[in-house]
Computed example of a mutant assay.
Amino acid sequence: MNLFFPPVCEGCKSLLSDNELLICGACRHDLPVTNFHFDDNEAVKKVLYGRVDLQHATALLHFSKKGIVQELLHNLKYRGHEQIGVFFGKWLGAELSGLKDYKSIDVVVPVPLHRSKLRKRGYNQVAKFGQEIAKALEVDYNDKTLVRQFATKTQVFKSRLMRSDDAKPRFQISEKQRLIGMHILLVDDIITTGATIEACCNVLQEINGVKISVATMAIAD
């Protein structure tokens, strides 16, 4: 199979060598890693300052238009390359599992897709990412309790005004008792204005005794 369909880098499309997986060494070296969770950087929390009470929050990478992270997220989200979610989930999961701040996590919850989008795409681009983090933290993964009520279009390339206008609360909770008193790690692919995360947190905070932390693959510059 490799003879006819040789593995190529998800970032630059160059051929991968035998010891490279998904991303070539050059692209891996160029990935704009944030190190937020190592440096106690509160950049993600600042996006949501005054709107959501978070325990901890981090993002693995910086996102910029036309950059390598955009290419990787496009491959994950629109081209069916779910292994990218696995790659990022194992990476971030391994880092968070060694940090005291994330030892109290009880469950990982992904930002859900609306059922119409899920049918069309066939998968939630955040699922593999969240599942791998849950494995690393040795906690449950719950994609049933948080439900999206309305389908919306992607937020990344909209203006700030358009994003805010299009991102009104659109989530609901089913079976609230499953998350009572838990420390939830909410995961998503990218945080831009924070409107989606805020909407999720607003309904999750209706559950008695919950605490919420956030982890995303990327944060928009």
Rank of each mutant, 00 (worst) to 15 (best):
K77G: 00
D30E: 08
L21R: 13
I212K: 01
H114Y: 07
D40N: 12
H81R: 14
G181Q: 12
M217Y: 05
R178Q: 11
K45T: 06
D143T: 03
L61Q: 06
K117A: 15
G130P: 02
H29L: 15
S116P: 05
V86A: 07
K144E: 12
L54Q: 01
I197H: 03
V44A: 06
C200I: 10
V126L: 08
R160M: 13
Q149F: 10
M182C: 10
D18K: 12
V111R: 05
H74G: 00
I190V: 15
S14R: 13
V214K: 01
W91C: 10
V108L: 04
L16S: 05
V203P: 12
Q131H: 11
T196V: 06
V86W: 15
V69M: 10
L21S: 13
S14H: 09
D40K: 07
I23A: 09
I190M: 11
L16V: 04
M162V: 14
F87H: 09
E20S: 05
S174K: 14
F150S: 14
K77A: 10
L76S: 04
L16I: 05
K117G: 13
E82M: 11
K13A: 11
K135F: 00
I23H: 06
R160H: 12
G85R: 07
Y78V: 06
A199T: 13
F129M: 04
L21P: 02
R148M: 00
H37E: 14
Q172A: 12
K211L: 12
D143W: 00
I105R: 03
N202I: 14
F38G: 12
H29V: 10
I184K: 04
E132Q: 15
H56T: 04
I207R: 07
E20M: 08
L15S: 14
W91M: 11
L146A: 02
C12H: 04
C201H: 00
A134S: 09
K66W: 05
L186E: 01
E198I: 08
C201I: 03
G85P: 05
E95N: 15
N124P: 03
F63D: 01
F129T: 01
R28N: 15
L204N: 10
A94G: 13
E71S: 11
K46P: 10
L204T: 00
V187K: 02
V126H: 06
K46C: 11
H62Y: 15
Q55H: 14
A167I: 03
N208Q: 11
L73E: 01
F129Q: 01
Y123R: 09
D221C: 09
F87D: 01
R28D: 00
V214E: 03
V86E: 15
G130N: 06
G67F: 03
E10Y: 08
N2E: 11
M182E: 15
H183N: 09
R170P: 02
V47C: 01
V147Q: 08
M217N: 06
